[in-house]
Amino acid sequence: MKLRRVVSDKLWTVFTVVALGLAIVPLLSILFDIASKGISVINLDFFTQLPPLANASGGGMGNAIQGTLLLVALSSAIGLPIGLFSGVYISEYGVTNRYGSAVRFLGDVLAGIPSIVTGVLAYTLIVLTFQSFSVLAGGVALGTMMIPIVSNTTAEALKSVPNSIREASIALGIRKWRTSLLIMANAKKAIATASLLAIARITGETAPLILTAGISTLWFSGFNQPVGSLTYYIYYFGTSPYQNWQNMAWGAALILIAIVLGINAAVRLITRGKKAYA
């Protein structure tokens, strides 16, 4: 064999290994920087106090953590049931008809719509109507984002339940809707996994909140009022010129990444070998 071909073969291997290194280094750097910069502001106050004034000392991100939890809860209340039953339709009724596959296709496309656009949508629908940024608008925006994600992952989960279970159930004279519930029960682990990943995904969303939930320096004061969130504060404090705010941003980033990567790592470790995309 010619030397040129041997060398080219080796170069390809080197190229893929270098590419892998380039892909992984940023993650290590991100984790290292967030841990080292964020840990110094994490204390009890960080969870219980309101954000500090610029150039002041102390304070915390208590209201942002509260806001993020509220937004995630509200959006899950909207997005999970709609996405779940939409997934049931695609898998249990829509496999054989064009509408089912059209819905599935649109779901995939919607999942790729930039989140800022969802923010604009919720803005025109809710913020303009009520003339105020609000928890409600934020929850609707994030919930809207969840629907296609949950719907398609649920459909995948249900389709993986063997057909023999459906047939056995129907053969026993069990009604279709009860059969569907049975199938859901059979896929409950996969559905829970999918829901958790969707929750992790929207917990880290920022762009739609800028146009919907807004930001607040106070505690939650009603669903029609704006609320602070970890992500918005990371952006707001992180791009500010004040050292104490920047420190707070790193602390918030540490909490956020612990939640998001924690959920992701736990889910992936439990369901090894499952695909994340497509």
């Binding site: 940023p26 750097s29 880290g204 969303e205 790193w250 790592a265």
Partner: peptide, 21 residues
């Protein structure tokens, strides 16, 4: 697993890291 973790990092964190690091 590592590649999937990279996918899960929120974009605002990429922004913060990009800005300061």
């Amino acid at each position: 697993f590592v590649v999937e973790m990279l996918a899960a990092v929120p974009s605002v964190i990429y922004g913060l890291w990009g800005l300061f690091v």
